[in-house]
Design a protein around this nucleic acid. Structure first.
Lengths: 390, 390
DNA sequence: GAAAGTTTGTAAATTGATTAAACAAACAAA
DNA sequence: TTTGTTTGTTTAATCAATTTACAAACTTTC
């Protein structure tokens, strides 16, 4: 049944509102909080003193007077605790520790060759432990762990299906919570990337956005009104498998003409093999060639940009998001992709949705997933107090 | 700023929870409400007596004892007020009056030939007035008016753009509220249809669904977690203009190979013109031919069903909804469309999203939009008390 | 530089909706 | 007839917010 209203809930609501305001607009005075929230000064005073007592907020001295008594400024204590975020890739593990504002304080990276499940989990655990052992002295220590995985997870943090790891039904959240004794959140890498860009990167300006991650395949994370959209049972959309050519190349997914057959790293490298007649080219190599002005490479990126544009037009027409953020490994080819991509978007998308739309490339680069994972952990930490009412 | 918590909010939350429970599970006793909500019996008693006073709830006598005192059963008073819903079509207006449960008590239909704006609004006003004048004696009378329009509206009920009516920037909500003095809600016809099927039709079982309306073109309404998804600035998705063939037929929207070029009434009739060599065939005529076993007609519907399937696979892969409801005028050809459609879905969609998905045809037929419009009005009436907390 | 007016933040009294506890009424089962 | 259960109300206690009042600190104005 729904949450009912009582005094306890009321206080949680207000405390959460005050906390959010201090987190995002500090330094700020009690009077200013009262004005912005509509709460009385007395209530704000009382809630703030509890937040100070719980070490999440500090007083940092007086600010400028506006014609009366000087305000006492409050600051969010971003070092009251730390979060660990992990990008669990198919060939690598990246793990970072951030403060409660998402500022990185430590980082661990390893390569792996996709060993058996338990070995990989052991590697993962080692990475996390290494960071956890170096956590700075603080009120709450490590407040939680977030993991971005190349696959699907359900709400209980079970990895349902991660084809490129060869995993199916792995209760990763439970395993890690047993190991470390702190809250763990598991989600898809594109979802994590979307949250990363939304919180700390190119997407902070919009309440809703679609993040498109272009690496080996195409992944997407959709944020609607500040909240990650998850499809039924934890599977969010797989826009990479939307067909842009219904009678096109068959895809292993069962469909034909899937977008990611035309606009992914794999598509690019397959094309490159044809064009250059060399078997194993890499993206870095193509970027270097493009930098040198190599016509073939430039043509390849131009073509890729156009195909990206075609799928992005579909996203625009279907979702009408205020912003689209392009990330993933191929986002580093922004210089050559952006122009053809925008040209296709300009020409083909519906005028009304397009009017206020912005297409941006990732600001966090390879770190969007890890930082999103940290954000999961931080959000969970604050969600104990966070409640929303509309 | 966000809503803050105070005693008034607390009461609104609880009253709304109790009201919702009585609306959807009546007859129900106070004790049972207390048990299901977690509120104390005292609180429930107090709230219920206020609801009874406001005429929204009635006591209807004692129920069966479960080994003690007999419970007094409470009933939602669905005739405490009435809602008016309108389907404003390009060639017709359908308006209905329902009780607060969405049961139709009166209906008005007229045809029109798309006259100038002010004349059509006058027609619309006449339809509404005709219903409003016949409202049964009740506590609240007409509680609101909902309108489904063939175009886009913003949150303030301005019709931003309705190409087939030739309207742009019409403040319809304000005009009607000035005229009738009660709350008015304006939204897209597909959004209304989605809500109609969700509340009263084929979609009651799911918290989220995608409604696909196939008439002249293709419209869609997306409901996520009991809530209608609207894109930025009131434009929701136009999935009809997702391309299924990036190098296909050019569409007037600027894109190429749009789904609705292959899978709409217009597409069907264009094909029919080719096949039969007759210029102006109608859908009803084709359905009659199909009923008679006409091979050409059967082939046309089969082809249409497959193209519908292709777009629906895209919806499944992109949104992963638990249910897809197919409505609009062509939904009446379910008998011939369903088979080829499901066959394509079965063959082409990703196994994971598909696993628990259901594809259903409309239960309300031509009435999904009007009933959805009524639901808008009813929801607005109850939203004065309705608050959700998570 | 004194008076007047502002702004900040705290303190005390009041309000009001919920909970907890007690209870009366109505009923079934032993 | 007794016992125990269920329903719904009454009463007192609780507690977080509001209202009101006020002290402290500061700027502006004359």
């Amino acid at each position: 049944m729904k949450q009912t209203g009582d005094l306890h809930l009321m206080k949680r609501i207000n405390k959460s509102i005050v906390m959010e305001l201090i987190r995002h607009e500090s330094p700020i005075s009690r009077a200013s909080i009262a004005e912005k929230t509509g709460l009385t000064k007395a209530t704000v005073s009382s809630l703030v003193s509890e937040l100070i007592e719980s070490r999440l907020v500090d007083e940092i001295g007086a600010g400028e007077s506006r014609g009366g008594r000087k305000p006492m400024l409050l600051l969010f204590n971003r070092t009251a605790g730390y979060a660990i975020g992990v990008d669990l890739g198919v060939t690598y593990i990246t793990a970072v520790m951030t403060d409660l504002n998402g500022e990185i304080v430590n980082e661990v990276k390893i390569q792996h060759d996709n060993p058996p499940r338990d070995e990989l989990i052991a590697e993962l655990t080692r990475c996390i432990r290494e960071l956890a052992e170096r956590v700075p002295e603080s009120a709450y220590g490590v407040v939680g762990i977030g993991i971005g995985i190349p696959g699907f997870a359900d709400e209980e943090g079970n990895v349902l299906f991660a084809p490129n790891l060869g995993w199916e039904h792995v209760p990763l959240q439970r395993m890690l919570e047993d190991e470390f004794g702190i809250p763990v959140v598991i989600d898809n890498e594109a979802n994590a990337g979307a949250v990363g860009e939304k919180e700390f990167g190119a997407g902070t300006r919009w309440p809703s956005l679609v993040y498109v991650s272009i690496s080996a395949g195409i992944g997407t994370g959709i944020i609607i009104k500040e909240e990650l959209y998850r499809g039924m049972s934890g599977f969010s959309g797989e826009i990479g498998h939307v067909s842009i050519q219904h009678d096109g190349k068959p895809c292993r997914c069962g469909n034909a003409g899937c977008w990611e057959l035309y606009a992914s790293e794999k598509a690019l490298l397959d094309e490159a093999k044809e064009v250059y007649g060399q078997p194993r080219m890499k993206v870095d190599q193509l970027i270097r060639l493009a930098e040198e002005g190599d016509a073939k490479a430039l043509a390849l990126f131009d073509r890729l940009g156009r195909y990206l544009g075609i799928g992005i037009v579909n996203i625009i027409n279907a979702f009408n998001p205020p912003a689209i953020i392009i990330g993933g490994r191929l986002a580093q080819a922004e210089a050559w992709l952006k122009q053809p991509l925008l040209e296709v978007v300009e020409r083909r998308s519906l005028p009304y949705p397009r009017a206020q739309l912005e297409v941006q490339f990732s600001e966090l680069g390879v770190r969007s997933t890890v930082l999103g994972a940290c954000s999961f952990a931080i959000s969970k930490f604050f969600s104990s107090t966070k409640v929303s009412v509309e």
